[in-house]
Amino acid sequence: MVIKNNGIKKLPLLEINNLITYYGLIQILKEISLRVEEGEIVCLLGSNGAGKSTTMKSILGLVRAHSGEINFRGQRIDNLSAAQIVAAGIATVPESRRIFPRLSVEENLQIGAYIHKASLPSLQPQIEQIYNLFPRLKERRRQAGGTLSGGEQQMLAIGRALMAKPKLLLMDEPSMGLSPALVDKIFEIIQQINRSGTAILLVEQNAHMALSIARRGYVLQTGSLVAHGTGDELLHSEEIRSAYLGE
């Protein structure tokens, strides 16, 4: 299916075809196919061990695909290195707010822009933009990342990913372990980032929240895609909610 935009057929931003991934001898992903259009928020749902994180790592080249194809902006990326994939325009907010704990807030942000090979001082205007988005980070710019609160660390992880100026942002469970108020705040920011033109592939266990902001969603179960639809469809389907989303 190709979404029509003003009658012109557009290539999807990210397209995964029949992706199969193994960890050793164990097959984790069983022929996953999905796509993300430009400017879209797409969510990938499923319980623990469904293969959500593996899908993310496969896209980023941190796990090698056994077979299948991953295309990004019409270019095959499944045989590229992680560095090349980040340079192509995919950045990630890793699971459980993995920031560099001993590096300062500002250094964490500088690392995010690493692939652009810009000198450290020339990154300053871009860092200021991140501070505008997250004023708390500016207050703590010289502090070690590990001394921040959970919510602030998540903001830092998001800020670091944005420093790469991605076309597509992968977010692995951004709401995990945060208070409800902070989850709301993070989802607000995700929408804000999306409005500025960045497509987002969101992996979540918090299905309700994720579907409420996503245009489309996929449901993964033990490595296979079992459902696919618009956010509303998935959110209001009794069957899917009870079977896969644990509600």
Partner: peptide
């Protein structure tokens, strides 16, 4: 402390997994 190379070294020592996801070899 002040160069891209040093930042890269520290990132690899702090968390190689995240460093790789930032595009560092």
């Amino acid at each position: 402390n002040n160069t891209r190379l040093g930042l890269r070294m520290r990132a690899a020592g702090e968390d190689p997994g995240v460093a790789a996801s930032c595009g560092i070899n």
